[in-house]
Amino acid sequence: MTAPAHGRAPPALVLCRQCCEYVFDAEAACPHCGGDTRRAGARYLASGYAPIEAINRLDRVLERRGSN
């Protein structure tokens, strides 16, 4: 009999709402464009990313809850 395998998951990234490049969730100023990562810019709004990211955040919360 062997021990079950255990792994780690990578930290989740979010999109900078200015330049739409990935950043770490806690980032306020974007390391790529220098903008405010949380203030939705025109490209972010036009891309339809906002509702998708909202669903992703909810999924992550539910997944983390389920894995505790």
Partner: peptide
């Protein structure tokens, strides 16, 4: 990552893990 990663990997499919 880079400027096109969101285009083909996400956010619906998730970023490169």
């Amino acid at each position: 990552f880079g400027p096109y990663d969101a285009l083909w990997r996400g956010p619906d499919r998730g970023h490169y893990p």
